[in-house]
Amino acid sequence: MHPVIKTVLGRLAMGVLTLFAVSLIIFSSMELLPGDFGQAILGQAALPETVAAFRRELGLDQPAIVRYWQWVTAVLQGDLGTSFSGRNASGVDRSREVVDLVLPRLRNTLFLASIAALIAVPLSLLLGVTTALYRNTFYDRSVNMATLTTISFPEFFVAYLLILFFASLYPIFPSLANVDSDTLFGERLYRAALPALTLTLVIVAHMMRMTRAAIINLLASPYIQMARLSGASSAEVILKHALPNAWAPIATVIAFNLAYLVVGVVVVEVVFVYPGIGQLMVDAVAMRDIPVVQGCALIFAVTYILLNLLADIIGIITNPRLLHPR
């Protein structure tokens, strides 16, 4: 078998294993709950029969391995379980399916994250490469200083600064990004402008710094000096000599930062009261609505793992040593 295919398959297998381990961890969050949580969810007034029925619904009377199997097969079929909220002591059950809660919000979050990524990735690659090329110039120093400052800011600080200027002092954009499924695309874009801008600023700072470091590292290779000494121009050095070897580090940087986006989105959604999955998760954590927390965590984790896996695979299929084995 070609070494590239072999390595990629190996990496995919590792990815599946990781997903399995992560699903175990997320599943076991239900196991770790204290014994009286049924009472806590349903309220002090709940009758013992109601609590017992609730426990039976969760299947807590069965061994953990059986429940894990049921849970995983259900998840694979798109069933994330039923929310804890909406139940009360009398046994009336107005709880909703987790999937129904998550799906519309997931769409909103993906919309927000994609806008941020679409602006941030090209911008930070451009900044990263140019600052690496014009190292220690005034341009490089100022961009560096600005990004170092930005990565030191909590996301909510950036968000509130933007609100202060663009929503409060000069009301250009709305400070609350409330969208629903009926909101038209243009309107949606307008309302999501400030959250998207916040995410972009934070991501660009991180991504630009990492791109710069990766490119500088690459430019220090002996073969780059050799290319210079053979009379290659700066453009040729970058395009022909550095770039073919840069895909792996650049893919890693992008994947890492898109994964960071996943995290940043939580805080930003809360600040702007944007109806995304991050806000859903934070609310669920506050109410200890474990099935919803599990569902959201699973979605975040899977995105994160898949992004990193993709970066690994790009790194493998562009590695000349693997592409052209001995």
Partner: peptide, 19 residues
């Protein structure tokens, strides 16, 4: 460079572009 003056480096393995 590369035409009228050329250079042979100590470590050829590191000085050739792997790509």
């Amino acid at each position: 460079w590369g035409t009228r003056i050329t250079y042979v480096a100590q470590s050829a393995a590191a000085s050739f572009n792997p790509a």
